[in-house]
Simulated scan of single mutants.
Amino acid sequence: MARPRRIVLIRHGESEGNADDTVYEREPDHALRLTATGRKQAEEAGVRMRRLFGQERVSAYVSPYRRTHETFHRLGLDPSLVRVREEPRLREQDWGNWQDREDVRLQKAYRDAYGHFFYRFAQGESGADVYDRVGAFLESLYRSFEKPDHPPNVLIVTHGLTMRLFCMRWFHWTVAEFESLSNPGNADSRTLMLGDDGKYRLDRPFERWCTPEPYDLTH
């Protein structure tokens, strides 16, 4: 099994929706573009990615949203070294169709109170639903490692919540641990590094906004 030395998760750059939440009333979430700031963020992230990967091969998976596609292309990776695939299971948490700004703000407040993992948007998904499809993607990713010529790097261009849920699934974090973490910033990344002991570790932790409540599963 040719496990990669690095699995890099990167969030898309700033999108039109990050800059102005009224755009969700007029444009589908999946169709939103990067802003000028987001394009610059992606290009700056590309400098870091090219330095990290060097001349090594990369297997890339990109969420089907326009802003993740644009982020990937702005990274400026050498196409001769990168095998890229669109991966629908890495998409953003679905809100469901066009959105009313005031309703979205109300639902976000409800989600903050109820919990990001379990709260289900009225016409969309819960965090738990995203966790399930990320888990299905991981099964496919593990199978790809069985190929002896698998590239030494994996790059996943996705969304903030999906990044946290990917790590939750990979490292077997509890729901309480997941709930205590903040999303990374736009075009921010986290890298799972393969150690000499065969285990992956994050290059740096996610920021915490609270201390997770401990659970004792032995009783």
Rank of each mutant, 00 (worst) to 15 (best):
residue 108 K to W: 14
residue 59 S to R: 12
residue 75 L to S: 01
residue 60 A to F: 01
residue 103 D to Y: 07
residue 59 S to Q: 13
residue 109 A to R: 14
residue 80 S to Q: 14
residue 87 E to A: 14
residue 104 V to Y: 14
residue 83 R to I: 02
residue 105 R to Q: 15
residue 84 V to S: 08
residue 80 S to K: 12
residue 79 P to R: 08
residue 80 S to N: 13
residue 60 A to G: 03
residue 91 R to V: 03
residue 99 Q to F: 08
residue 103 D to F: 07
residue 88 P to A: 10
residue 66 R to M: 10
residue 76 G to R: 07
residue 110 Y to Q: 14
residue 102 E to W: 08
residue 89 R to S: 11
residue 108 K to C: 10
residue 94 D to A: 11
residue 68 T to P: 01
residue 85 R to K: 11
residue 109 A to P: 00
residue 59 S to L: 08
residue 73 H to V: 08
residue 67 R to N: 06
residue 103 D to E: 15
residue 97 N to M: 11
residue 95 W to T: 05
residue 107 Q to N: 06
residue 76 G to L: 03
residue 102 E to P: 00
residue 106 L to N: 11
residue 98 W to Y: 15
residue 65 Y to D: 10
residue 57 R to Q: 13
residue 109 A to S: 13
residue 69 H to G: 09
residue 106 L to F: 12
residue 109 A to V: 05
residue 96 G to I: 08
residue 106 L to V: 09
residue 97 N to Y: 11
residue 63 S to H: 09
residue 104 V to E: 11
residue 95 W to S: 02
residue 58 V to I: 14
residue 111 R to G: 05
residue 98 W to T: 12
residue 60 A to L: 03
residue 104 V to F: 14
residue 82 V to K: 02
residue 79 P to V: 03
residue 79 P to I: 05
residue 77 L to S: 05
residue 105 R to I: 05
residue 89 R to L: 15
residue 79 P to C: 08
residue 94 D to L: 11
residue 100 D to I: 09
residue 82 V to Y: 02
residue 92 E to G: 02
residue 78 D to H: 01
residue 77 L to E: 04
residue 92 E to F: 04
residue 95 W to P: 00
residue 92 E to P: 01
residue 62 V to M: 00
residue 88 P to Q: 11
residue 110 Y to P: 00
residue 76 G to H: 08
residue 92 E to T: 04
residue 65 Y to N: 02
residue 76 G to Y: 10
residue 87 E to G: 04
residue 91 R to Y: 02
residue 93 Q to K: 11
residue 85 R to W: 06
residue 109 A to Y: 03
residue 70 E to W: 01
residue 110 Y to S: 05
residue 58 V to R: 01
residue 60 A to T: 03
residue 67 R to K: 12
residue 104 V to C: 10
residue 109 A to I: 06
residue 62 V to R: 00
residue 83 R to H: 07
residue 110 Y to R: 12
residue 107 Q to L: 04
residue 90 L to V: 03
residue 72 F to Q: 01
residue 97 N to I: 09
residue 109 A to E: 15
residue 93 Q to S: 08
residue 99 Q to D: 06
residue 80 S to C: 06
residue 60 A to V: 01
residue 66 R to Y: 04
residue 71 T to P: 05
residue 55 Q to W: 03
residue 105 R to H: 12
residue 88 P to H: 07
residue 75 L to T: 03
residue 68 T to N: 08
residue 70 E to S: 03
residue 86 E to V: 13
residue 81 L to C: 05
residue 87 E to N: 09
residue 90 L to P: 01
residue 85 R to D: 09
residue 93 Q to C: 13
residue 90 L to Q: 05
residue 100 D to N: 15
residue 66 R to F: 06
residue 76 G to K: 05
residue 63 S to T: 10
residue 56 E to L: 03
residue 102 E to T: 08
residue 80 S to P: 00
residue 71 T to M: 08
residue 110 Y to K: 13
residue 98 W to G: 05
residue 64 P to R: 04
residue 84 V to L: 02
residue 84 V to E: 09
residue 111 R to M: 13
residue 63 S to L: 09
residue 60 A to Q: 05
residue 82 V to P: 01
residue 56 E to C: 04
residue 63 S to M: 10
residue 97 N to A: 15
